[in-house]
Design a protein around this nucleic acid. Sequence first.
DNA 1: TCCTCCCCAGTTGCATACAAATATCGCGCC
DNA 2: GGCGCGATATTTGTATGCAACTGGGGAGGA
Lengths: 209, 209
Amino acid sequence: MTATERVYAHIRDQILAGTLRPGARLGEAGIAADLGVSRTPVREALRKLSADGYTDLRPHAGAAVRLWDPAEVRSSFAIRADIEGQAAARTAQTITTGQLAGLEQLCARMEAPGAVAQRSELNRELHQTILRISGLVHAERIAMQLADIALLTLTFHSFSNAQAERSDSDHRMLLMAFRIRDADYAQAVMRTHILTAAAVLDDVSRSRG
Amino acid sequence: MTATERVYAHIRDQILAGTLRPGARLGEAGIAADLGVSRTPVREALRKLSADGYTDLRPHAGAAVRLWDPAEVRSSFAIRADIEGQAAARTAQTITTGQLAGLEQLCARMEAPGAVAQRSELNRELHQTILRISGLVHAERIAMQLADIALLTLTFHSFSNAQAERSDSDHRMLLMAFRIRDADYAQAVMRTHILTAAAVLDDVSRSRG
DNA sequence: TCCTCCCCAGTTGCATACAAATATCGCGCC
DNA sequence: GGCGCGATATTTGTATGCAACTGGGGAGGA
């Protein structure tokens, strides 16, 4: 693994974990010193982070963790609902028994009692797997990128058990749709699943100010 | 403007123009010599090109113009139909008289007799404007990225006058939908407009082998 | 003849040094 | 005391040199 990749992963993880808050400035020299590399790989990593939407990068002014305004976050859910909805429909049409078994297993791991810490990771994997099976090559890249944007906001909220259970239930409905190869149903469930997440987030944000 | 930006624009334009064919290798030293800069800005430009999907970049193995397989191109149209369809619906709901006039003007310029060379550019601008008005912040970035992918393929085909006229007619229908603020109609027209482009491309490709 | 391994040319990855641009702080002026 | 301006310090942008890795060609063996 190259130094550039290490730097990229390091900063991205810190952003997603919330250690680096939106607006935080990312000085090249500081990061280079922290990770024990020169500024060159740091610069390359910052450019990729910017291209992937994690940071803002202005010429001669440096990089800063990107600040997403609520409207942008909402719009990311709206687009994901479209893309992942279509992907779910295609997946329902083409999924194999083996792939279905893999998804069942993912769901089971997510529903296990002690899996709270891994929920986010497993959820990500579930959605990514469905996108991959759909065969919509770009959908996977785009939807996962948008999902990360949502994650940046979600990091600062905690959700109730009831919401986790509802989400698990959505996933089970989705697998049922795949099992009976009902594309319309799969699409509807996926759209609802994602738009519900958006609505819950909106609801929580409003009530907290 | 920085050297990195100049290099990025130079290579991207060559790729979109078809001068650099898919699969062509992009050696850092050669590009640097051609443009009279050092390898550093070239490397940064290549990384951004890769992040934006124009090139493949493998560690220690260099960059090459990305080769899109037909399934990927088709999937890019499918996703654009979703995203731009939704954007058109929202635009119909929120567009102002002034914005509508701007779109009318764009259409008129596209339909002018001598505008063949600028059609692609104006078409791009029209779609981009609609995406921007929709307020779906991510939709603009994603859809335009996907549109460029299609452009890479379209570069090597030429289309008939009949197809250009049909496309113009689609745009007029879209503006009518905006004028009467019919979101459903706008969405349907936009979906059809994009999926027709996909179908035509598919049809032409098949008949030519 | 074909396959495998190794070596070498060529390319990419990283570090360092220097140039250019920007932001900050202090000073003088209003 | 507040505001504008300029020198300085900090940060980013670019060039260059060296180290590390990849891919191909040739020698050796099966």
